[in-house]
Deep mutational scan, measured.
Amino acid sequence: VIAMPSVRKYAREKGVDIRLVQGTGKNGRVLKEDIDAFLAGGA
């Protein structure tokens, strides 16, 4: 999974398994917005 360390930390704090999140950034990078969208109700 491609993600910046700050995004990985954010996901950990929110209790999200970053491997389950679909990245929308360049080359499938997971963004902070992707974590929020995942929490809001889905992949």
Rank of each mutant, 00 (worst) to 15 (best):
P5E: 14
K14G: 03
A3D: 05
K26N: 10
A40D: 11
L20T: 08
A11P: 01
R12I: 15
V30D: 00
N27P: 02
V7P: 03
F38H: 09
G15C: 07
G42P: 13
G15R: 08
I35Y: 00
D17E: 07
G42Q: 15
R19T: 12
L31M: 11
I2Q: 09
D34R: 01
L20I: 09
V30R: 03
G41F: 14
D36P: 01
K9E: 14
A37H: 11
P5L: 12
N27M: 10
Y10L: 04
G42Y: 12
E13D: 13
I18A: 02
D36W: 04
V30Y: 01
K26A: 12
Y10G: 01
E13L: 15
L20F: 11
L31K: 08
F38E: 04
L20S: 09
G23K: 03
G15S: 07
K9D: 15
A37E: 09
E33I: 13
D34H: 02
A43Q: 14
V30T: 05
D17H: 05
M4Y: 15
D34A: 00
A43H: 14
Q22L: 13
G42T: 13
K26S: 10
M4I: 11
R29Q: 13
E13H: 09
G42A: 14
K32A: 07
R19A: 11
R29W: 10
K9W: 11
L20H: 10
A3E: 04
R8L: 15
D17V: 04
V21L: 07
V16R: 00
G23Y: 02
G28D: 04
A40E: 12
R12C: 09
V21Q: 01
I2V: 11
L20M: 13
K32W: 08
I18N: 00
A3M: 05
K9V: 08
K32S: 06
K32R: 13
G25R: 03
V21N: 00
G23D: 01
G28A: 06
R8M: 14
E33F: 09
Q22N: 12
A43M: 14
A37M: 12
G41L: 14
P5R: 15
N27T: 05
V16M: 03
I2E: 08
I35V: 11
T24Y: 03
R12A: 15
I2S: 09
V21D: 00
V7I: 09
K26Q: 11
V16D: 00
I18V: 07
I2L: 09
A11R: 00
I35S: 00
P5I: 13
V7E: 05
D34P: 00
K14H: 12
K32F: 10
I2A: 08
F38N: 03
M4W: 15
G25S: 04
Q22W: 10
S6N: 11
G42H: 14
A37L: 11
G42R: 10
K14L: 12
E13I: 12
A43V: 13
D17W: 05
V16G: 00
L39F: 07
V21Y: 01
V21A: 03
V7G: 02
I35P: 00
D36Y: 04
G28W: 05
T24P: 01
S6D: 14
I18P: 04
A43T: 14
V30M: 03
I2T: 10
F38I: 07
V1G: 08
R19V: 07
R12T: 13
A40Y: 11
E13V: 10
E13T: 10
Y10H: 05
G25M: 03
G42N: 14
K14S: 07
S6E: 12
V1M: 08
K9M: 10
G25F: 02
G25V: 02
D34M: 01
Q22G: 08
P5Y: 07
L39M: 10
E13S: 13
I35G: 00
G15T: 04
N27Y: 12
Q22Y: 11
R12Q: 15
V21E: 00
V21W: 03
A11M: 01
K32G: 04
E33W: 10
K26Y: 12
E33P: 08
K9C: 08
F38Q: 04
I2H: 08
I18L: 10
I2P: 07
R19M: 10
A40L: 14
L31N: 07
S6P: 07
P5V: 11
I2M: 06
L39P: 04
R29T: 09
R29F: 08
M4S: 15
M4L: 15
K9N: 10
Y10P: 01
L31V: 09
I18T: 03
V7W: 03
R12N: 13
R19L: 09
R19N: 12
R8P: 03
A3V: 08
G41Q: 14
Y10V: 02
E33Y: 10
V7T: 07
A37Q: 10
L20W: 10
V16K: 00
A11V: 01
G25Q: 03
D34Q: 01
I35F: 00
I18Y: 05
M4P: 10
V16A: 04
V1L: 10
L31A: 04
D17M: 05
A40I: 12
Q22T: 14
E33M: 12
Q22E: 10
V16H: 01
R19F: 09
M4T: 15
R19E: 11
T24H: 06
G15D: 07
G25P: 01
P5G: 11
A37W: 10
A37Y: 10
R8F: 15
K26H: 12
L31P: 00
V16N: 01
R29D: 07
G23M: 02
A40K: 12
N27E: 09
G41N: 15
M4F: 15
D17T: 04
G23F: 03
D17Q: 05
E13M: 14
F38T: 04
D36A: 04
E13Y: 11
T24G: 04
F38G: 02
L31I: 09
R12F: 15
G41Y: 13
G41H: 13
G41M: 15
A11L: 02
K9G: 06
R12D: 12
V16C: 06
R19D: 08
K26G: 08
L39K: 06
